[in-house]
Amino acid sequence: MANAKELDPSSSPKAFFGAELRRLREAAGLSQERLGELVFCSGTYIGQIEAATRNPQLDLAERIDAVLNTGGYLARLCPMVTRSRHADYFAAAAELEPMAVTISEYAPTLVPGLLQTEEYARAVIRAADPLALPEQVAERVAARLERARVLGGPTGPEFWCVFHEAVLRLPVGGAPVMRQQLHSVVELVSFGRILVQVLPFTAGAHASTAGMASLMTFVDSPPVVYVEGQHSGQLLDDPVLVAAYRRSLDLVRAVALSPEESLTLIKSTAEEFAR
């Protein structure tokens, strides 16, 4: 992580916010750990914001303002810092993905965004917002493909996903797009650091969440879960809820096909789309 003292505050809105937080914290005579205790987060998180490796969240900025008696200064800076190419409800989760050590996801209806091909992503985005202008669709597709780069390097997170079999059967974008998408999943798995299982229809009732759920773990921060429905999503950090989602994901993996059986099913389904 970059040293906050070495950052140029003028280099980005995030760096400016971090510098201002550090200035206000030190003026109050508080360490990162002590400020974290007062606002109910870790000192590491405070340090990451000061070093411009994490975006500040509005609710946290408001708590810091109250503790440091800033008159709402940091909360007013937040909109400038947290602008994102992603939907507002997903922006915080997207920011955390590159920092994760592991990402475990259950996908009930669609291929996860981190594994989507360009054509599959375009079909999903168009279906969700058929009145969107072409340039808006192109921007959203680019943002989704940019996210996927996090899995491309040796230092990226390990990604373990369970697809419901419905994901393989739903002809998003038509047969050619689905065939390309499923072949892409197989190819990505062959590179390592990505593990995919399929939850077959024959599994019947199971312990999955009602919608998608993505559990992220970190080296020096507590795990979080991102859950999403139609046009909304939520990042959860409550330890009880995180533990409950972790257990659900473990149970789903236990009844899913093995990784080898899953790849066989994905390949055979891809060929069915070729016919």
Rank of each mutant, 00 (worst) to 15 (best):
D129R: 14
E119H: 13
P98T: 04
A61I: 01
L257K: 03
A87S: 12
E260S: 11
L145G: 03
S258G: 10
P112V: 10
L77I: 09
P239Q: 14
T209L: 05
G113E: 00
A123W: 01
S208M: 03
P56G: 10
L21T: 02
L110Q: 11
L38T: 02
E62K: 14
A207E: 08
M1D: 08
R147S: 02
I46Y: 02
Y120P: 01
V255A: 10
L60E: 12
R122P: 03
Q180E: 15
G204M: 13
T102I: 00
D59E: 13
T70Y: 02
A87F: 04
L168T: 03
C41F: 02
R179L: 13
L7C: 05
P98M: 04
E119D: 15
V198D: 01
V227D: 00
M99T: 08
A138E: 15
L145K: 04
E6L: 12
Q48L: 07
A207T: 01
P134N: 13
V81M: 09
L170S: 14
L263Y: 05
Q116K: 05
D88C: 01
Y226C: 04
V39D: 04
I49M: 13
S12Q: 08
A121T: 07
S42G: 15
F201L: 14
M80S: 11
G153M: 09
A4V: 07
G233E: 05
Q136F: 04
R83V: 14
T117L: 06
N3D: 15
G156K: 01
T117W: 01
A210S: 07
L265K: 14
E261R: 13
P171F: 01
D238T: 08
L241H: 12
Q197R: 12
V162Y: 00
P79T: 12
H164E: 15
V189K: 06
I49S: 02
R34A: 12
P223M: 10
A128R: 09
E118G: 04
A75Y: 03
Q48K: 09
A274Q: 12
C161I: 14
F273H: 03
L110P: 03
D237R: 11
E261W: 06
S221P: 00
A87Q: 08
N55E: 13
S248A: 11
T209F: 04
Q48S: 07
L74Q: 02
R149D: 11
L58F: 09
L263Q: 14
A75W: 03
S232F: 08
R22C: 07
V242Y: 05
E260V: 14
